[in-house]
Computed example of a mutant assay.
Amino acid sequence: MAGSNRFVHIVDDVTDLGDDPVLVVALHGFLDAGNGSVLAVDHLESTGGVGPVVATFDVDVFHDYRARRPAISFVEDHYESYDAPRLVVRVQRDATGRAFLLLSGPEPDNRWEAFAGAVREVVEVLGVSLVVSLGSVPMAVPHTRPLAVTQHANRRELLLRANQWRGELRIPSSAHALLEVRLGESGHPMVGWVVHVPHYVQGSDYPEAARALLSGVEDSTGLTFDLDALKVAAERRTAEIAEHLAENPDVAELVAGMEQQYDAFQRGIDESLLATDQPIPTGDELGAEFEKFLAGLDGPGAGSDETPDAPEGTD
């Protein structure tokens, strides 16, 4: 076994990674509104195949089984098909055949410091040149406007765009955030991309989030992905939402209020994001209206033969 960290097992003879491989970190759970990371991983594996595992984390140490209970089938008189959680690193390939590493699975519930140390072991043993994390958060933005994207990094030269946020925000932490801090302290570069998903669709598959995240990975790494299937899925989801709004004018009015709010902010009219002639719809208002609609979109039989629905990736 390569390396010495007891929380991760790395394959001894990893070959054909090329020079200075990139590690993409796509964990589902806290930072996965719209199942952005889950859909991104599903897309990478469906277009490039499921690559070989080169590192396995001790998931029993990191996972809270009572908080996020894995599924298992009960068949007549016995249990079978246990869906065990896995935190693994695979070798994947982009559209040009270039190898990269993909760390996927549930965000650790426990022992974040140990997890950060284990990822550092992977980085050092496999010669990773750059770590890129994916995340998506719910935001009071309308689905009819371009997704906002926030970039962050532990080295300023890795930043490719200026964020709209200014000053300091105190927010709940995540394993991704701590990993960026700890890797920076040990001299390893890490950059992250976070998309802002409309809060009223955060519990449903939102393919545009995955497309935006993988576009960010392309920008940071030079990797190339075929994102056509995600584009088609995103357009289909937008059409489904538009159809629902056409049949429910009260909901459409709430979304229109968010559009005015968003446009006012973009023009710099009001820093509070408040539109002057339209009340802001709350998350509860939109959430209540969309709950049954979204359940129908992602329920049994709602998927298409063109792009299968990704598994759920929320807590």
Rank of each mutant, 00 (worst) to 15 (best):
S4H: 14
R6D: 15
R6C: 14
V8Y: 00
H9K: 14
D13S: 14
L17G: 05
G18I: 07
V24Q: 04
V24W: 04
A26N: 04
L27T: 00
D32T: 11
G34P: 00
S37P: 06
S37W: 07
V38Y: 11
V38D: 12
V38P: 07
H43S: 05
T47A: 04
G51P: 03
T56W: 04
D60G: 11
R66G: 13
A67Y: 00
Y79Q: 11
E80C: 15
S81M: 12
Y82P: 10
Y82F: 15
V91Y: 04
V91K: 03
L101F: 09
L103K: 06
E107I: 07
D109N: 14
N110T: 08
A114S: 15
F115W: 12
A116H: 09
G117S: 06
G117Q: 02
V122E: 04
V123Y: 00
V125L: 14
V125K: 12
V125M: 13
L126N: 05
G127F: 08
G127W: 10
G127V: 10
G127Y: 11
V128W: 01
V132M: 13
S133C: 14
L134M: 12
L134T: 09
G135I: 03
S136D: 05
A140I: 03
A140K: 00
H143S: 05
P146I: 07
P146D: 03
L147F: 14
V149R: 07
Q151W: 15
H152W: 10
A153T: 01
R155C: 09
R155M: 10
R156I: 04
E157I: 09
E157C: 08
E157R: 11
E157A: 10
E157S: 09
L160A: 03
R161Q: 15
N163Y: 04
Q164W: 06
G167I: 06
G167Y: 07
L169W: 15
R170H: 10
R170M: 10
I171E: 05
P172T: 06
S174E: 12
E180S: 14
E180F: 08
E185K: 06
V194P: 08
V194G: 10
V195E: 01
V195L: 01
H196A: 13
Y200P: 02
V201Q: 13
Q202L: 14
G203A: 12
G203S: 09
Y206Q: 05
P207A: 08
A210V: 12
L213V: 05
L213T: 00
G216T: 03
V217I: 12
E218Q: 06
D219L: 14
T224I: 13
A229I: 00
K231Y: 13
K231I: 12
A234C: 11
A242G: 09
H244I: 11
E247Y: 08
E247W: 08
L254H: 09
V255G: 05
A256I: 10
A256R: 15
Q260G: 08
Y262L: 06
D263A: 09
A264R: 04
Q266N: 01
R267P: 08
G268V: 14
G268I: 15
S272F: 02
S272C: 02
D277F: 04
I280M: 15
I280K: 11
G283R: 00
G301P: 05
A302V: 09
G303S: 13
S304Q: 09
D305P: 11
D305G: 14
D305Y: 13
A310T: 13
A310V: 11
E312L: 15
G313D: 01
G313Q: 02
T314Y: 07
